[in-house]
C-alpha cells in the first residue's frame, strides 16, 4: 500500500507536471511568446510610466527631473 502511494505520487506528478511543462512550452511557441523580444521586454511600461521614467525614491528625496510627475498634473486638469 505504501509502495502504491509513493509510485502514484511520484509517477503521477511526473506525468502531470511534465505534461504541464510541455503544454506551457508548446503554448508559448504557438502563441508567439518568443517572437518579438524587443517589444516583450517593454510590456511592463505604460503610457504614464514610460521607458526613461524613474518610479521610486526615498520619501524625503527631492524630486529629480526623472521622477517629475506629469500625469498627476494631467489628471488635475481632466
Amino acid at each position: 500500500m505504501a509502495d502504491f502511494i509513493v509510485y502514484a505520487t511520484v509517477l503521477g506528478s511526473i506525468v502531470f507536471f511534465g505534461g504541464a511543462a510541455i503544454l506551457a512550452m508548446a503554448w508559448s511557441f504557438r502563441n508567439g511568446q518568443f517572437e518579438n523580444f524587443h517589444k516583450s521586454s517593454r510590456s511592463i511600461f505604460d503610457a504614464d510610466e514610460p521607458v526613461g521614467r524613474v518610479t521610486d525614491r526615498f520619501p524625503d528625496a527631492p524630486r529629480s527631473h526623472g521622477t517629475k510627475n506629469s500625469s498627476s498634473e494631467a489628471s488635475h486638469r481632466s
Binding site: S13, F17, G18, A21, I22, M25
Partner: peptide, 16 residues
C-alpha cells in the same frame, strides 16, 4: 519543435 519539447520534458522529469 516536437523533439525539443520531448527533450525538455525528459530533462525536467528526469530529476524526479
Amino acid at each position: 519543435t516536437v523533439t525539443l519539447l520531448l527533450g525538455i520534458t525528459l530533462t525536467f522529469a528526469s530529476s524526479w
